[in-house]
Design a protein around this nucleic acid. Structure first.
Length: 554
RNA sequence: GGGCCUGUGGCUUAGCCUGGACAUAGCGCCGGGCUUCUAACCCGGAUGCCGGGGGUUCGAAUCCCCCCAGGCCCGCCA
């Protein structure tokens, strides 16, 4: 509906002026939409923009297609303001469950995210990937796409060989209550220390890698065992973060099923192939200065080859491929895309996010320098529990714990998703543990507040005719929700939804403080309760798309 | 050395792709508001050469060029 109106206004302007790129801009505080077409016409018409705007506004007012909007010339601008008739139409949708769901689409989408190496627990950098990926996944589902979310398990890298070497050669017993992934990190860190002291170990690690690539059953079994244990640990963390994968795809499967070999044979025939000791692609004609190595001189494949095989498989089963990857993968991601196109396969769309570092520098699993997601979750739940206990001492402990879990999850997910992915960030405990404005709990609180009002109201007759400025402001925010979902999916930028949800909560809070709902009477009470219901529903849908629990009390 | 990303009040940040009306919000600071629907809230105030310099344009935080600073990458690692 807003979109349709937008198109209609745009058409009206184009028909009238003949300016093809007469785009509408945000009217800010002056109006809902505005056009600056008068500036562009000033030269050709040899008239002042103000005069042109006045004349155009007069003509636009006569256009029956846009009768629902108020047209007004203000200086050189022509402003468009939606009337309350428009707003009431939108509200009728917004009070219904599933508001913001877009029409079903046939395009099958596969989305890969997280895919962290299984050599230690997920840390606060990895979960930026998980949260961006999972939020995108939820937005895609809301936008009507059939979607599968995958985790690509790197089960045959050097890191895993180091882990396996550590378990074979070091004191590797698991400590009491030690989580699997933390256990693996401890052994991985110790093995790396040993390697620094003794270069002979590197040869042993290389042997392990050869064995696994050749499919030696005992070695493959060992690798799988440690990787599985690490993934079991990840599963707990991801569940705590409300992040879900539909399928775990194992890298080594692409060796076993012959797909890697098949793709290497195709790559060999490319004009860009350089087969010397290694097999590599020369992509310099596309601006890549380094060689893209596919196969080692000892005949084993490198990560890139398996990754190409994996993507070819994704392309065969899905229409669109989306990968969420760290900024460190930009170059290899671009090489992958380039190569896929050259062999006539679908190339992935890649969402890159910049790094999360610690105040003392970048994180490193190998050096043991990281803040694990588990530690963050434990700490934030503790903080949230104290907060809930202070505010709601009358609630029993189980209820307070449940609220604390939801609030903690909200704080973590929102803190991470609210920042544009291209911004590198420094992890800050104080900010991560903040429950105030511009936080997930702030939005949850607005939702709980709306629920509370509705709970006390009892039954009422829905009324969609809003009147006051505050009421209309809230309704216009609500009206934007479907476009926001569309935009997130189109631009692959989930932080847009985070910003929107916060703005909706802001607008509702202001309304709440100025316009009494329960104490008003008759039609006013009905229409305000209807508005509260629409806000509650839209906040709920927004929060759920952000992977945050829309709790009803807190 | 080359490539990509970032630089917006003391701190964090939206807007940049698709140029327009006094640059968005939070934290912190100052001043107000709970006998009133949940104060994890609201209202008001101070704080900006939008990294610097050039250019394009009637108009630049936004587009182009140069420079500076930070992050990431440039492996027979993954």
């Amino acid at each position: 509906m807003p979109h349709e109106m937008y198109t209609r206004i745009e058409k009206a302007i184009k028909d009238l002026t003949g300016v093809p790129d007469a785009l509408l801009v945000d009217g800010g505080e002056h109006a809902d939409l505005a056009t600056t077409v008068a500036f562009a016409l000033a030269k050709q018409k040899k008239q002042a923009p103000v005069k042109i705007a006045q004349d155009l506004a007069l003509e636009l007012k006569k256009n029956p297609d846009i009768a629902m909007v108020t047209v007004e010339a203000k200086g050189p601008y022509i402003n468009f303001t939606f009337g309350s008739a428009f707003v009431s139409e939108v509200l009728k949708d917004a009070v219904r469950p599933g508001y913001g769901n877009l029409p079903k689409k046939p395009t099958r989408v596969v989305l890969e995210h997280t895919s962290a190496n299984p050599n230690g627990p997920l840390h606060v950098g990895h979960i930026r990937n998980s949260i961006i990926g999972d939020t995108l996944a939820r937005a895609f589902r809301k936008a009507g796409y059939p979607l599968e979310v995958q985790y690509y398990v790197n089960d045959m890298g050097r890191q895993i060989a180091i882990v396996v070497w550590g378990f074979d050669n070091l004191d590797s017993a698991r400590q009491d209550n030690e989580k699997e992934d933390a256990h693996i990190a401890r052994i991985y860190i110790a093995a790396n220390r040993a390697i620094e002291k003794d270069e002979g170990i590197t040869r042993q690690v290389n042997t392990l890698m050869q064995l696994v690539e050749n499919g030696d059953p005992a070695t493959v079994k060992k690798f799988r065992k440690e990787v599985s244990r690490c993934l079991d640990g990840f599963a707990v963390t991801l569940k705590d973060l409300n992040v879900r994968h539909d399928r775990f795809v194992w890298e080594s499967d692409f060796i076993r099923n012959g797909n890697t070999e098949r793709i290497i044979n195709r790559l060999k025939r490319m004009p860009q192939a350089r087969e010397e000791e290694t097999l590599a692609l020369d992509l310099s004609e596309f601006g890549f200065t380094n060689k893209y190595v596919i196969r080692r001189s000892d005949g084993t494949s490198v990560y890139a080859a398996r990754d190409l095989a994996y993507h070819a498989w994704k392309g065969a089963n899905f229409d669109r491929i989306i990968d969420v990857l760290g900024a460190d993968h930009k170059l290899i991601g671009a090489q992958l895309q380039c190569t896929m196109k050259l062999i006539g396969e679908k190339a992935p769309e890649i969402v890159h996010f910049e790094f999360v570092s610690l105040p003392e520098g970048s994180m490193s699993t190998r050096a043991g320098k990281f803040v694990s997601a588990d530690d963050l979750i434990t700490e934030i739940r503790k903080r949230a529990f104290d907060e809930v206990t202070a505010r709601r001492p009358e609630l029993d402990e189980a209820t307070r714990k449940a609220i604390a879990r939801s609030v903690g999850l909200a704080a973590i997910r929102y803190d991470i998703v609210k920042v544009s992915p291209e911004k590198s960030t420094v992890f800050d405990w104080k900010e991560a543990l903040d429950f105030e404005r511009q936080s997930g709990p702030y939005i949850q609180y607005a939702h709980a507040r709306a629920c509370s009002i509705l709970g006390k109201a009892g039954s009422f007759t829905e009324c969609f005719e809003l009147e006051t400025e505050q009421e209309i402001a809230v309704a216009k925010k609500i009206a934007r929700f479907p476009e926001v979902i569309e935009q997130v999916v189109a631009e692959l930028r989930p932080h847009i939804l985070a910003v929107y949800a916060r703005e909706l909560a802001d607008t509702f809070n202001t309304f709440y403080h100025f316009e009494p709902v329960l104490k008003s009477e008759g039609k006013v009470r009905d229409r305000r309760l209807t508005l509260v219901k629409a806000v509650q529903n839209t906040l709920k849908e927004s929060l759920q798309t952000l992977g945050i629990d829309a709790i009803e009390t807190m």
